[in-house]
């Protein structure tokens, strides 16, 4: 499943999608960046309520397939532009992380 297919099936709000064909292979939920950095796997969809620019750096370094901001969180100013530049797919969902995670898991 590509990130674009996932976003459509879950009716996510697309913030930016510079790499729509990226394959989703798993998921990880967390807001402590070091924790995510050390544990999220390449190809994971990362669910978080963190909205700052460092999310883009961590997503790039951990090589996650996409970031979903949960609880209706929107990225801080400048985050979308940075993500476009770094090829990081960003989405948002009004649901909380557990609910979104369950939906992603059901699709995998």
């Amino acid at each position: 499943m590509t990130v674009h297919e996932m976003a459509e099936k879950l009716s996510l709000q697309t913030i930016c999608e510079p790499d729509p064909d990226r394959e989703v292979t798993g998921g990880y939920t967390g807001d402590l960046l070091s924790w995510v950095m050390g544990r999220a796997q390449s190809g994971d969809v990362w669910l978080t309520i963190m909205s700052n620019q460092n999310v883009v750096a961590v997503a790039t370094l951990a090589d996650t397939a996409a970031v979903i901001f949960t609880e209706g969180v929107q990225p801080d100013a400048g985050v979308r532009e940075l993500a476009e530049k770094k090829d990081v797919n960003l989405y948002s969902s009004p649901d909380h992380s557990f609910a979104v995670g369950a939906k992603v898991a059901a699709l995998l």
Binding site: D31, S34, W35, G38, M50, N52, N54
Partner: peptide, 16 residues
């Protein structure tokens, strides 16, 4: 509040 300070920095560096 920015998502840092989990106390995982040096442990992650050692593990990596």
């Amino acid at each position: 509040n920015m998502g840092f300070g989990a106390g995982m920095g040096l442990p992650n560096m050692k593990r990596s």
